[in-house]
Structures are given as structure tokens and as C-alpha cells.
Write a protein that binds this DNA or RNA. Structure first.
Lengths: 212, 212
DNA sequence: TGCTATCTTGACCAAATGGTCAAGATATCT
DNA sequence: AGATATCTTGACCATTTGGTCAAGATAGCA
């Protein structure tokens, strides 16, 4: 029962650390190469372990992919926290946009893996999309409808409002190279993300009659 | 010189037809499987020809991919036609959004191939992004700036306005399965696209102080 | 201190896939 | 009609890659 004090890792710690290393490497490789383009060999190398060791923790590439995706889906459900009926619409929406934009800046690989999955027809997450995600969005859409009915924001289709918000924020993670190229930069920096978030907030808030 | 009247195809016609069949099949397969996931065998089957015949017209998978991409890039440059200084901003933007949304509805495979290319770092089109596309966007951004300076629309960062417009319209092609799932449908129908276009137009036009 | 369960890894394999080849078919030009 | 360039296709090959195996190493436990 007593854990050892030396630099000797416990079995549990070994497992935890290796799984974490593999998931992190896998997210990066799946993001940049896609599912088919990614090889378990490259993921293993990036994780700093031999390939058979990777297959010891994740039997198949598909299983590893599912594990990566599960992590990402969990993130997704959190972001909408600020959208509640009691909130001030302008604050709530600004905060939501900030949160999504921060996610694009800090977890670009996660966003890309998810985007890639959707792009190819969501074979692995269709259930999630039509289940937990649909319920959450339907729920939040009701909040928006409440705001509209109370005259607190201008009329809009709540579902499509969310689609536009997702698109406008995630584009800065998924298609960062396009945005950087068009802006004449090598890479996007934090200031670019701030400017992007401000632009999106301004457009959306004015678009809902909440500013100016 | 005289072309034949019978059902005998001329060499030129054969080439044209086969190239077209291959490009169409390739666009669909690249869109749904990505570059690595696509196989020349599947593309050939979908085009209705044997695999070696495909390789007769396109030496390598990469060459075929480039050809597909070139077709798509040509489409891209056209869409901004309505954004000109003399136009009424509301009309021009509404028309641009309509055009992009129509493109998402009628050419979803093209949009997806492009999205996939960007997602993976744009290895094949980086030159285009920083070249022709950047010049076009810089140009159109000047038009937007002119409208702002003249007080015809509310202030906004013109480049980021374009990024949001692209994202908001292309999301309906690239991530259609997510949108359909969240809306509780099997597939998006024309009415959904109309509603989407209207929502985006409304948000953007109000966001630029052009409505209500 | 042994015994067991977990972890590690070099060597290996079967299947998939991009691409080739060479022989035959078809249109075109003289 | 004959010669030639273009097109077609079954058979084939080298490489890549997901995954296995079996033997050895290491931590946990009685």
C-alpha cells in the first residue's frame, strides 16, 4: 500500500503518465495529419516510446482516436456555461465568445481533430452530436428565445446564431494558416486573437441590437 | 480534321470526358476521406474506370489532388465580385453572403476539400493563400474601409469581417453533419440553407449598422 | 525473498496501396 | 491501307503500416 519514495514510479503512475503522453502526442498528430494520415509509429515517436508500447495501452489506432475525441467532447460541453436566462445577454454572449476564442488559441489541436472528424461525416461522434450536444444546444436556444421574447435582444434564429458563433470562433483554430497567410504573417499571435475576439463580439452584439 | 458523326469518341473528347469524370470522383473522395484516406482505387471505381487508366491521366495521387484543388481555388476568387466601392454596402454584402451560401449548398465537396487542406496546414496552397488570395482580400478590405470612412457602415476590422463571413457561410458545407444532427435532421434541405443565409445576413448587416 | 501482474521492446507479419508494365485496342494522319 | 500516337487494362511489385509475439524487465505483494 505504501508508495515508494525513490525515483521509482508506481505502476499506476507509470500508466497515468504514459497514457497522458500518448494522448497528447496523438492529439497533435491526428490534428495535423488526420485519422488516416496519422501513423501509430509517429504518435509513439512523438510520445517518446516504442510503437508496441503504445499498442499495449491502446489496442488499436481507432481506440486511441476515440480516446482523444472523448477528451475533446468533454471540453465542448463546458463552454456554454455563461448562457443562462438570468444573465445579462451582452455579458453572457461576450463571455461565451471569449471562452470559445480562448479555446481556439490554447487548444488548436483539439479543435482541429474535432473539425476533421466533422468534415468526414462524424463517423465516431454522430451519437454525441444528436444526443448530448443537441440537448445542450436546444436548452441554450430556449434561453436565447427567452431573451428575444422579453425584448432584451433583437429577433434571430437561436440555433443558427450558435452555428455562426461556433464557426466564427473555431475558424481561428481550424484555419489559422489561412488567416495568418492573408494577414501576411507566419503565425497568429495573441494580439491577433484579441482583435479577432473583439471583432466577433462587436459584430454579434451589434447584430443583436446590444451595442451602439 | 473533320470530327466523326457516329458514337465514336474522338481522342480529345475521350480525354476531356475521362479527366472530368476523374476530377469529379476525386473531389468527392478527397472530401469525404481526406488526402491520405482517399485511395486511387476508390477514385477510379467511382469514376468508372480501372486504376491504371486513372494513373494514365494523372501520374500520381498528389498530381490529381493538385488538379482538384486548382479547380476549387478558381471558384474562390470569383465569389467576391459584388464587393466594389460603388455598390450599396447592404446590397453588396447580402449578395456576397448569398453567393457563398449557394456555394456551400451546391459545391459542398469542393468546400470540404479546401477545408481539409487548410486544416492540415495548407501544404499545397500556401502560395495561393499568401499570394492571389491575400491580394484580393487586401483589395476588398480597402473597399470596406472606404465605406467605413464615408460613414456608410459601422467601424469594423475589414479582414476579420471577411474571416467571419467565410466561416459563417462555409460552416454549412464543411460541418453540415453537425448542423443537421443538432437540428435533429438526417440532412440539411434547401430551406435550412435559406434560413441560414437569412440569419447570417441579418446578423452581419445589423452588426454593421445597416438594418433596423 | 520469492511469486505474480504489469510494463517494455526488438523482431516480425499480413494486408493495403501507390504506382508500373507490357500487350492489346482504338482513333488519327498520310 | 498502313503507320503512329493515344488510350485501356489485367497482372504485378515495393513500400508502408497496423498490429502481434515472446522474451525480458520492473513494481507489488505474501
Amino acid at each position: 500500500m505504501r508508495p515508494q519514495r525513490k525515483a521509482v514510479a508506481s505502476k499506476q503512475a507509470i500508466r497515468q503518465e504514459n497514457v497522458a503522453k500518448i494522448l497528447e502526442a496523438a492529439e497533435a498528430v491526428f490534428a495535423t495529419k488526420g485519422f488516416s494520415g496519422a501513423t501509430t509509429g509517429e504518435i509513439a515517436t512523438r510520445a517518446g516510446i516504442p510503437k508496441p508500447n503504445l499498442h499495449y495501452y491502446f489496442r488499436t489506432k481507432a481506440a486511441l482516436y476515440r480516446a482523444v475525441l472523448d477528451d475533446i467532447l468533454a471540453l465542448w460541453l463546458d463552454a456554454t456555461a455563461s448562457i443562462v436566462a438570468e444573465a445579462e445577454p451582452a455579458d453572457a454572449l461576450r463571455r461565451y465568445i471569449e471562452a470559445k476564442m480562448a479555446y481556439s488559441r490554447t487548444r488548436p489541436f483539439a479543435s482541429k481533430v474535432f473539425a476533421n472528424e466533422l468534415l468526414h461525416g462524424a463517423p465516431a461522434v454522430k451519437g454525441f452530436l444528436g444526443g448530448a450536444m443537441k440537448r445542450l444546444v436546444d436548452d441554450k436556444a430556449k434561453v436565447i428565445e427567452g431573451w428575444i421574447a422579453a425584448g432584451r435582444i433583437a429577433p434571430i434564429d437561436p440555433h443558427h446564431l450558435f452555428f455562426v458563433l461556433w464557426a466564427a470562433t473555431q475558424t481561428y483554430a481550424d484555419f489559422d494558416c489561412q488567416i495568418a497567410a492573408v494577414l501576411g504573417k507566419k503565425k497568429l499571435n495573441p494580439v491577433d486573437y484579441d482583435r479577432a475576439g473583439e471583432t466577433v463580439s462587436t459584430l454579434i452584439l451589434r447584430g443583436l441590437g446590444l451595442k451602439g
